[in-house]
Nucleic acid binder design. Structure first.
Lengths: 254, 254
DNA sequence: ACCGGTTATTGATCTCGATCAATGTCCCTT
DNA sequence: AAGGGACATTGATCGAGATCAATAACCGGT
């Protein structure tokens, strides 16, 4: 049984640049003329190798940088007054983290590595200066913000537990696909508990839904290994064809 | 019993300018040096007088303009496949509408006037050019987007019906307050049904919650007239002190 | 290989808000 | 002033998911 996820592979940890990053097209410099990418790369710093549970930033820390996932997976969450985690987003390679803090100038979410990985740090002041020269950077930032906004509003929709889980799984599949990885078979980067928290469900319900989906021969989760058996019927369970991706193009609603 | 809402007053309908707009500080030009406001005002056009039920824009229309509420109130909504309205936001004077369409270049929500009012139309291409000269416009746009993002994520939180209604009422009160109107006594600009739709509840539940709040001597709704009797106890019902405002500063969570 | 803590699974019961139903109120039109 | 359609209120019942509880599987560390 395959145990390692391709995307978890961080064996070659030498610093890399945006120029040869596999997910640049999804990331902040994605709209730049290739000739302008080195100028952008110059302001980017890579973090140390991060391990499961390491924080990228915490709530109330002053906002100084935007971050992008270089390798690995991250989760954003808040902690309520009873000490319970509430996951607000999962972040895949190439996705930008921290844009929510533009107005308040303090991060509003904790952001934590789900496994071994690395992030890119983009000092916002330098980004802002650069975006005045390269307006494509501004356009991309606007894109990211407005996509996240639409996605956030839709994830507030009143869905059944089955629809929620189906939509999340479809979104994860899409995100693997747009990064060039297998989209019908993959390791879940996050725990069942994190999934439940993200979807405002309890872990018991997520577990039951997985059992149901297996009985329906749509999707099997064994250990953390997911196999999508029937992508079409999975898609039918997702209302509006809105998947919980961060950058996939937003579909129209009827 | 007072029947007209101050903010509904559109008796003097001559075109006005940003320079003497009472809610400019909340709006797109809010961060501009006063000397630069006329340059911004030059690209702004006011709509005709709009009446209850008039559309400002519809889903799938090409995105050409940002809009701002000049007078009156607006709601944004989608229509699901069963023809049911799903309200996604209410907009008060000075608030900017349409920013969600930056990425897709088509509006993703219907936006409709709730009563007699008027909106400002800001052609986005001209705004974009101007923002390259006045970076404060860009900063404000970022602010608006990131605030909406945080608000949208929180409105996805798992609240009880009581918490939802309390949070909305507190948000409305705050929004009246920051516009200089009475914040403890006002006319509800939207129907109970719209409130229910916004909060993913049914109108029956909203009605029952209002009855409960009256019995608790926290808040009375008679006809559309709201009187807040105990602001402190209302605030206690709002988790995280996050109110559903568009521009009020986002509070920290514990 | 063995533990100890975290995480997943499965079942029984409970609860909040939805649904169904009936009546009442408001407001716009004529 | 009358009538009609949308909107609001209140009660009775229902159901999806939470909660409570118990067991099992997994994982990291020594």
């Amino acid at each position: 049984m395959p145990r390692q996820n391709h995307t978890n592979n961080v064996s070659r940890l030498k610093p890399r640049s945006c120029e040869d990053c596999a997910v640049r097209h999804l990331c902040l410099p994605g709209l730049l003329d290739p000739a302008d990418v080195p100028a952008f790369n110059k302001i980017v710093k890579r973090t140390d190798v991060l391990h499961r549970g390491d924080y990228l930033y915490r709530v109330d820390e002053p906002f100084t940088d935007l971050f992008a996932v270089f390798t690995g997976f991250f989760k954003a969450f808040v902690v309520d007054r009873h000490g319970r985690e509430q996951v607000t987003a999962f972040h895949f390679p190439g996705e930008v983290m921290g844009v929510h803090a533009l107005a308040t100038r303090t991060y509003q979410y904790h952001t934590m590595s789900l496994n071994t990985g690395m992030a890119c740090r983009i000092p916002f002041d330098e980004f802002r200066d650069l975006s005045h020269k390269f307006h494509k950077l501004d356009d991309r930032l606007h894109d990211i913000l407005s996509r996240e906004l639409i996605r956030a509003r839709f994830s507030a929709a009143n869905l059944t537990a089955l629809q929620k889980v189906a939509t999340l799984m479809m979104g994860i599949s899409r995100r693997f696909e747009e990064r060039g990885y297998a989209s019908r078979e993959f390791l879940l980067p996050m725990s069942n508990t994190d999934i439940a928290s993200r979807l405002r469900l309890v872990p018991e319900t997520v577990s039951r839904i997985f059992t149901r989906l297996a009985k329906m021969k749509i999707l099997v989760v064994e250990d953390r290994h997911v196999t999508i058996l029937d992508m079409d019927r999975l898609a039918v369970l997702c209302p509006h064809n809105i998947y919980l991706t961060d950058y996939h193009s937003v579909k129209k609603q009827a």
